[in-house]
Structures are given as structure tokens and as C-alpha cells.
Design a protein around this nucleic acid. Structure first.
Length: 933
RNA sequence: GCCCGGAUGGUGGAAUCGGUAGACACGAAGGACUUAAAAUCCUUUGGCCUCACGGCUGUGCGGGUUCAAGUCCCGCUUCGGGUACCA
């Protein structure tokens, strides 16, 4: 019987489904293990061969853990809300609900063909009301919470209201948008609306007028991680800065906890470093500078308090509220012109031009240490959103200040002995201070500390920690997202009672975004909140007395993906996000596999979201993902044919230089090992129907290049095609064999035959012709050794996610057993258990051929018995001064003295020693003998 | 600019603690079986010298530590990724 993968895979996929083999229980005597994949956006293009890479890796680990006796949670779902799904719907002119449903069905189909061990009963879709009910619920909790800096946790806003009523803002250290102060009397005198306005300053989910990234082409605002180099990450459209009233999440309040939490996580150092940079903690000082001729003081932030003696000017961000106050009458016109110019420059232009621009305000400030007057300038190289939107400029030791000073001819005072600032600034934090009053003679590091202390002791400012991490903008002016559970009374937002959730997304006729920013939900006819009847009502009935308008924006893509891992624990629970029992059992994710592109988005937001839920006390762990592995990207490998210019003749790769040719992308699916299928090429496109070929050795060889996998390059490989041709097991093995999991690599089918051949050889061990040939004989020591060294290697490799080398180990094992003509159950049964996580179908078939009734999923992973690995002799390479000259074979139990004796007392060593006595003899047990002359 | 990874045969890649570099696979060459092809199997395959035995050389480049370096240290070259007027 041949290895008929098609039949085997079809049969077992059906069996697994019918018998609920992958169903997971929330109660078990076994220890738990939670393996999670980053769930996919179901895009219209379907899965390509790169998508399953991480899924295969996690599936192997899940199956391995199950064989090792764990109760394994390995779910799958779909991140169905958000921009990509909606963009696809817009492109195809269909309603996103329909396209999303279709795309999900296609994804499921493709995933099932690969034989994953998901418990589909736990499937979640973020666009499903029963799921987003809990996204909305979490939002309401955030709305009703504030962050206490003292206890470093979220607290109910009701506590804050009580505190305000008794003590005003006295004795409070809480995260806020703007520092404000009032007494209890002042608070109590305010009306409901005013009080609500103040509370907005503290809520963890709050609405505020902020400068946001507005993308006109997408018709929505974007979070910082959705913008790269002034362009939207999705679609690459220009993004501008715009002041808008938006929902935000106070992620910044959690900055320190997000930073500290990284230390305990088993993530790669580079990913943790990316997050640390994104959080961007910097320790410095806030300092007060007095405006000359007044008593007014403004605050700047610096990490280089040691350089105050070198401050030769100040710079304000154009958006700073101080701009108006410091602009003198004479400069008014110039300043306004500059502000106007800045407004019209997009973020992208600013970055691209890198031009020094700015304007003098007309005013001066007083340097608090030197008492000198220094001019105040306005320039867009200072950002309003970081620090205080104002800086002290030290051109000698900051390259940006330096460029500005050179451009506007401002003085430059060097502060470090011997530094040369004639060509560029000296930014390094090293050297000895000079020109710096009481700091002279100190090293820079000492000076920073001394200056900070001086500033604090003399009331010039205070030591301050700043974070680059900013609050997440949470509104999207789009249709396809979770509706906010918010309605407006007197212009103030109120939450819908949680027992009325979910607030279901209404259907609309026009779901397209608008360039001006009116959300498409405004087109919904039934989209209003009736407080009495507590239901969604007709928009025409809005009277602002009993029936109120609802929030028209929707939530961003990351809303639904922030806590999805909790929902898998208890996906059907209708009255809790996750039950206490389920959460206490599953705790958090033991292994999370996904792409590194989520480093500053999803992986920050879910950690934030999770910490918030932890503060509420509804979950047991404050970090969601214990271990994280980033699988590399699979790039495309394009193929080219070379057409002789002006003809329909194509010349093979190595002959192309003899002609004037033009390379043309050719569909990689009609090329095999870089050899073109000429017949299929002629059929591929009408233009090539009559194509002629100039061949080399009867073959047409194609050229190739590594490019992004995309339709236009004709290099997209669909996993379905591979499954069809080679089977799912071959696909799984081959994707892992391609190279290290975490490394990016091009898809290249050139080696797939080797992996497929391996499965055929494996099959050949169990079958002789049509007969199942496994016998009940005692295994020889050699066979046992082959088996146990494979067990050892495979176990080690799986634990270290080194799947490519495990497949090599399997190949070696099968080759050895084939040579040994071994068909013994004692060897062949453990072997398929080892292989089961990698190739579930073929192993399941062979397992049943061996007479087992239950699935191989519930077998026991074999243990390596070291006793079979012990050698009776060891080969020692003998080297002289590190160069290997000959090899000795000695008994394994030879003593060190025996080994030394053998190494020296023989003909060959005599030749190299030439009568001399060796200086040193180094024997590394079992490895090498080195004789130093 | 800053931060983090890489660089090993014709190709993808092994080498886990500093200990015989090139496992495994692809490709290529030769051979067996076959009328032939496919499939399968066997042999060779880093480079140079040698009929051979064997020797020399060899992990991006230049130094260093060590009996011994792909692996550790210093200085470069180069490719990839992340990030940026963050004071």
C-alpha cells in the first residue's frame, strides 16, 4: 500500500471532528497549559503559506504538551472588526458583515485542512455581539475608574467623588490629563455637568480635545502605533495633526507598571527592548524659568540639568499655550505667519524636509542659575505632547539645538573641557564640566546628579520622570467596530447600564467613512438611547429629555483583541467576561506565538487592559502572556522568465546575457525547482500562447528574487495547493524545516520533495507492499540506541522550539531504522508518538494500524532512557597544539591516566613529539585530547 | 542618528557549555533497476595540491585572548528589523 495522504488526511480530519477529539474541559486532574496564537484578521485574500507558520509551531507544542500529560487549551478565533475588514468590504462594495462572514468561513476551511488541534467550540469572533458585550463592559469599567498613583492601581471613580466632596483635591496623587486644584466647597457648589467635566480629567476611559493623527483617506483618527513616518500603517495614506474631541484610554497611567512587568516575562530581549523604548522612561528635572520683566514662570523638562549654564535660548512648541503670552506686539505678525505655516505642514513634510524653521517671540526669559536674559523662540522641533512643550536650548550639547542656533546665529557655549563644537554639537554624556559655575570639574554624570539636587533644594524645579508612552486614542470615525456603550445628556457622556449590554451595531445603508470626520453611524435610523425603556430607539425621537443620542464613533481594532485570551477560557458565559473558576484554572497564557509587528500595539494594549482588569479583581494574573515567541515572516520567492525584446521567445536563465531580454514575473505555481512547465506557461496567459523557448539542457531555467508575497508578483503560494499536492503533514513538516522559527525566510518549495520523501520512507517502515509489517520482536541494542537518541533530541528540540533540527533528527532516525531493517513495534510505536505533534494524520493512521482504538493524541510521550545511549567505546581526536593529527578509539570507561598513556605511547604521537616532553596534556571527557608542545 | 539582530559550501541551514565546522535537506555529477520514463536505491559533492595515501586552507574583514575560536574580547564592512526632532 502506498502512502495515500489524501485519503488518510480526509479520513482523520472527519474522525477528529465527529468524536470531538480536541474538546477541552475547564476541569481536569491534569496540570493546565495554555497555548495561544495571535488570531487572524480574516482578510479577503485568504491564507497564504506564511500565515500558518506560527499556527503550526503552536499546534506542535500543544500536541506535545498534551502527550506529556497536560490539559491543553489551544483555541482559535477571528479578529473581525477594524480597518482591514472594512477596507476589503469597501473595495468589493459589499457589506462588511457579509464579507467578514465569508472570509471567516474560508479561513476555517483552510485551517482545518492543515489539521490543527483547535477546540472550535471555543471559537470567538470580535464582531459577535455576545463577544463585544464584554469589550463594551470593560470600557464602562474604565470609564468608571481612575488611577491612583500612590497605590499604583485603578480605583472606582465613586471613591474619588467622595474624596472631592470631603477634601477637594487635597492629598490626592492621581493620573490626570491636566493638573487642577479645588476645595470641597468648590466641588460641592458645582452642578452635575460641571462635575462630570472635572471627572473626565481622571477617568481611565475619557473624552478629551486632543491633537490626533487624522487620516483623511481612511476617514478616521489613528493611534500612534497605527502611524509610521507620517503615513498610516494600513494603506500608507498621509496623516495630519488635528485637534478633535476623542475617546482616549489612560494607558500612560500604567507606564511604570508596563515597564516593570517586562522583567518577569519570557519574551525575547529585543521585543522587551522595543517596548521599553516605546514606553520611553526618562529621568530628568522640570525647571522653572521666569519670563523677563514679569513674575510669571514657565516650566521646561530636561534630562541634562547639568547644562543649564550653556542655555542660550528657549524654545516653545507652536501649540504651546505660552506662545500667545510671550509674543510681543512687534513680533505678532511674524509669529502668526509662522504658526500658520506650521499648521499646513503635514507630519510627513516635517519629517521629510528636516528643515530648521522657527520665529523669535520678542520676549526673554531669565536663566535661573546665571540670571542672564535669554531669547524665547518658537519652533516645531519642540513637540507639544512631550514634557511641557517647552525646552531650554543648549546648542553646544544637543544636535537639534545646535542646528537651530547655527541657522539663526545664536550663541553656543561649550561646557565640557576640550570638546570641539565648531562643526557639530557634543552630545555624549562624558567629560569634565567647565564654564559651569559650581559644577566645574565634575564629570557629566556627577554634574547631572548634583544639578538635579541643586534645582530641587533651591526651589527652581523638581526631579521628574517622563514617559514617551501616550494615551491611546480610542475613537474611530468608522462603521465596522464595536459601538461605544455611551449616550449624551446635556452634552456629557453617560454609560449605558451594563445589564443592557450588548449595545448592538445597527445596520446602515451607507457605511463608507467621510473625509470630514462625520461617523457613518450617523446614517443609522435606529440609533438613540431611550433611558426609560432602555432600548435603542428611533433617531427622530431624540428629544434630549427621555431619548438621547448615542455615541457615533466606534472602537478601534485593538479593542476586541485586548482581552480575547480571557474569553477563550469561558467563551459562552453570558453574565461574566470570564468566570472566577475558569480564570483560576487557566490563569494566563503560557505560550503566545505571533508576529513582531504587534510589539508596540496589541502587546502594549493587552498588557494594559489586563492590568486594569487585574486591578478590578476579576482576574488572577497581572500579565497576560508569560512566554512569547515571534515567528519570522515568510517572504515570497518570485520567478522570472526572460523574453527577448520585441519577440515572443523566452531564453533560459543562464543564456539570457547573450540576448537583449526583459525579465517578466511568472507564476511560481507553474515553476518547479526553478524549471518552467512550458505547457502550462503557454496556457497561463493568452499573450504567451505561442511562446517559443531557448532551452539549456532541455530545460527552461527561471531566474528568481526574494520579494514580498503579493498577488502582483505572482509569488503567492496557497497552502491549499500544497496540501492538495503533498498533503497537510508534508506542509506542516516543510514549514518547520524551512529554517529557525523566529527567522524571516523566503518561501521556497525547492526542498519540499525531501520532506515528502521522508514521510514515504517512514510509511515504508510500517508497510511492506500492501502488508502491515510491524512485528513483535525484541529490539537490538543498536535499534534501541537509535530510538532513544531520537527521543532525547526531539524532546530537547521541541522544548526549545528548534523544530527544523527535530525534523532532521527524524530523518536520520528513519534512515538508520531502514538500514537496520527494523520493523519492531518496540521501536516503531514510540517513534510515531514522537512524530505525532508534527505530522498528526499519518501518525494517527499508523497508530490505528497498530491496533489502538483511541486517538494518538492521548498516547504518552516516550521518555529517553539514558542506559541505551551509553557507548562502549569513545573516539578521541588527538591534537598537537590544537591541530588534529589522529584519532584513538578507547573503552568508554577508560581512566584519565589510561587515556593520556594511549595518547602518548604510540607510534603516531612519537612522530609528532620527536623525543620532546609535552608541556601539558588536556583531556576533555569524551571529546578530545590536546597535547601542548 | 539611536537600539536590536544577522553574515557559515551552488542553495536552505546544523554545530545546545570555547573542543574533529559543514549535521539534515535541496541541487548537481556519476551509477543500478527499466524498452523508456516516472518512482526508488547506491556513490561523490567547501576550495586547493595529490593517481592514491595524505597534506594545506577554510565560518564577512582586521587584530586579540586561549593548548583550542563560527562561538569570547576590541576595531571595521555589510545586510535586515525596529524607532525617531522625546529635550
Amino acid at each position: 500500500m502506498e502512502y495515500n495522504f489524501k485519503e488518510i488526511e480526509k479520513k482523520w480530519q472527519a474522525e477528529w471532528r465527529n468524536n470531538n477529539i480536541y474538546k477541552v474541559n475547564n476541569q481536569s486532574e491534569k496540570p493546565k497549559y495554555y497555548v495561544l496564537d495571535m488570531f487572524p484578521y480574516p482578510s479577503g485574500a485568504g491564507l497564504h503559506v506564511g500565515h500558518p507558520l506560527g499556527y503550526i509551531a503552536s499546534d506542535i507544542f500543544s500536541r506535545y504538551k498534551r502527550l506529556k500529560g497536560f490539559n491543553v487549551l489551544h483555541p482559535m478565533g477571528f479578529d473581525a472588526y477594524g480597518l482591514p475588514a472594512e477596507q476589503y468590504a469597501i473595495q468589493t462594495g459589499q457589506h462588511p458583515a457579509i464579507t467578514t462572514e465569508k472570509n471567516i468561513a474560508r479561513y476555517c476551511d483552510q485551517l482545518n485542512k492543515i489539521g490543527f488541534s483547535y477546540d472550535w467550540d471555543r471559537e470567538i469572533k470580535t464582531c459577535d455581539p455576545s463577544y463585544y458585550k464584554w469589550t463594551q463592559w470593560a470600557f464602562i469599567q474604565m470609564f468608571n475608574s481612575y488611577y491612583c498613583n500612590k497605590t499604583q492601581q485603578a480605583r472606582p471613580i465613586s471613591e474619588l467623588i467622595q474624596h472631592f466632596a470631603k477634601q477637594g483635591t487635597e492629598n490626592l496623587d492621581i493620573a490626570c490629563s491636566e493638573p487642577i486644584h479645588f476645595t470641597a466647597e468648590e466641588w460641592n457648589a458645582k452642578n452635575e455637568t460641571k462635575q462630570q467635566e472635572i471627572l473626565m480629567n481622571y477617568r481611565i476611559a475619557y473624552k478629551a480635545d486632543t491633537v490626533v493623527n487624522w487620516c483623511p483617506a481612511l476617514g478616521t483618527v489613528l493611534a500612534n502605533d497605527e502611524v509610521s513616518e507620517g503615513l498610516s500603517v494600513r494603506g500608507g495614506h498621509p496623516v495630519e495633526q488635528k485637534k478633535m474631541s476623542q475617546w482616549c484610554l489612560r494607558v500612560s497611567a500604567y507606564a511604570q507598571r508596563l515597564l516593570d512587568g517586562l522583567d518577569q516575562l519570557a519574551w525575547t530581549e529585543s521585543l522587551k527592548e522595543t517596548q521599553r523604548n516605546w514606553i520611553g522612561r526618562s529621568e530628568g528635572a522640570e525647571m522653572q524659568f521666569r519670563l523677563a520683566g514679569t513674575d510669571e514662570q514657565f516650566t521646561i523638562f530636561t534630562t541634562r540639568a547639568d547644562t543649564v549654564f550653556g542655555v542660550t535660548f528657549m524654545v516653545l512648541a507652536p501649540e504651546s499655550e505660552w506662545v500667545e503670552r510671550v509674543t510681543t506686539a512687534e513680533q505678532k505678525e511674524a509669529v502668526n505667519a509662522y504658526l500658520e505655516q506650521v499648521k499646513h505642514r503635514t507630519e510627513r513634510e516635517r519629517i521629510a524636509e528636516k528643515k530648521v524653521t522657527g520665529v523669535f517671540s520678542g520676549s526673554y526669559a531669565i536663566n535661573p542659575l546665571t540670571q542672564q536674559e535669554i531669547p524665547i523662540w518658537i519652533s516645531d522641533y519642540v513637540l507639544a505632547g512631550y514634557g511641557t512643550g517647552a525646552i531650554m536650548a543648549v546648542p553646544a550639547h544637543d544636535s537639534r539645538d545646535y542646528a537651530f542656533a547655527k541657522h539663526f546665529n545664536l550663541p553656543i557655549i561649550p561646557l565640557i573641557e576640550g570638546c570641539d563644537v565648531s562643526e557639530s554639537s557634543f552630545d555624549a554624556k562624558e567629560g569634565i564640566m567647565t564654564n559651569s559655575g559650581f559644577l566645574n570639574g565634575l564629570t557629566v554624570k556627577e554634574a547631572i546628579a548634583t544639578a538635579k539636587k541643586y534645582v530641587e533644594e533651591n526651589g527652581l524645579g523638581r526631579v521628574k520622570v517622563n514617559y514617551r508612552l501616550r494615551d491611546a486614542i480610542f475613537s474611530r470615525q468608522r462603521y465596522w467596530g464595536e459601538p461605544f456603550p455611551i449616550y449624551y445628556k446635556n452634552g456629557m457622556p453617560y454609560t449605558i447600564p451594563t445589564e443592557k449590554l450588548p449595545l448592538v451595531l445597527p445596520s446602515v445603508d451607507k457605511f463608507l467613512p467621510t473625509e470630514t470626520g462625520e461617523p457613518p453611524l450617523g446614517n443609522a435610523k435606529k440609533w438613540a438611547w431611550d433611558e426609560q425603556n432602555a432600548c435603542v430607539a428611533d433617531t427622530n425621537a431624540i428629544d434630549n429629555k427621555t431619548i438621547f443620542p448615542l455615541e457615533l464613533c466606534t472602537m478601534p481594532g485593538f479593542a476586541g483583541s485586548s482581552a480575547y485570551y480571557l474569553r477563550y477560557m469561558d467563551p459562552k458565559n453570558d453574565h461574566e467576561l470570564v468566570s472566577k473558576a475558569a480564570n483560576e484554572y487557566w490563569q494566563n497564557v503560557d505560550l503566545y506565538i505571533g508576529g513582531t509587528e504587534h510589539a508596540t500595539g496589541h502587546l502594549i494594549y493587552s498588557r494594559f487592559w489586563n492590568k486594569f482588569l487585574f486591578d478590578l479583581g476579576i482576574i488572577t494574573k497581572d500579565e497576560p502572556f508569560k512566554k512569547l515567541i515571534n515567528q519570522g515572516m515568510i517572504q515570497g520567492r518570485s520567478n522570472f522568465v526572460y523574453r527577448i525584446v520585441g519577440t515572443n521567445t523566452f531564453v533560459s536563465y543562464n543564456l539570457k546575457d547573450q540576448y537583449e531580454t526583459q525579465p517578466i514575473h511568472v507564476d511560481v505555481n507553474i515553476v518547479s525547482n526553478d524549471v518552467l512547465d512550458q505547457e502550462r506557461f503557454r496556457q497561463w496567459m493568452p499573450d504567451f500562447k505561442d511562446a517559443e523557448f531557448i532551452l539549456e539542457g532541455e530545460k527552461y531555467i527561471c531566474g528568481w528574487a526574494i520579494e514580498k508575497m503579493s498577488k502582483s508578483m505572482f509569488n503567492v503560494v496557497n497552502p491549499d495547493d500544497i496540501v492538495e499536492r503533498y498533503g497537510a503533514d508534508t506542509l506542516r513538516l516543510y514549514e518547520m524545516f524551512l529554517g529557525p522559527l523566529e527567522q524571516s525566510k523566503p518561501w521556497d518549495t525547492n526542498g519540499i520533495d525531501g520532506v515528502h520523501r521522508f514521510l514515504k520512507k517512514l510509511w515504508g517502515l510500517y508497510f511492506e507492499g500492501d502488508n502491515f509489517a510491524v512485528v513483535e520482536e525484541k529490539a537490538t541494542p543498536d535499534e534501541l540506541k537509535t530510538l532513544h537518541k531520537t527521543i532525547k533530541k526531539i524532546t530537547f528540540d521541541i522544548e526549545n522550539f528548534s523544530y527544523n533540527t527535530s525534523i532532521s533528527a527524524f530523518m536520520i532516525c528513519v534512515n538508520e531504522l531502514t538500514q537496520q531493517k527494523c520493523r519492531k513495534r518496540e521501536i516503531l510505536e514510540p517513534l510515531i508518538i514522537l512524530l505525532a505533534p508534527f505530522a498528526p494524520h499519518i501518525t494517527e493512521e499508523l497508530w490505528h494500524c497498530m491496533g489502538h482504538e483511541t486517538s494518538i493524541c492521548d498516547a504518552v510521550f516516550p521518555l529517553c532512557e539514558e542506559k541505551y545511549l551509553v557507548e562502549n567505546s569513545v573516539k578521541y581526536p588527538v591534537s598537537f597544539n590544537g591541530k588534529v593529527r589522529f584519532t584513538l578509539e578507547l573503552p568508554a570507561d577508560a581512566s584519565k591516566a589510561d587515556i593520556e598513556q594511549a595518547a602518548l605511547g604510540n607510534e603516531q604521537s612519537a612522530k609528532y613529539l620527536n623525543g620532546a616532553t609535552p608541556k601539558k596534556i588536556i583531556v576533555v571527557p569524551g571529546k578530545i585530547i590536546n597535547i601542548v608542545l
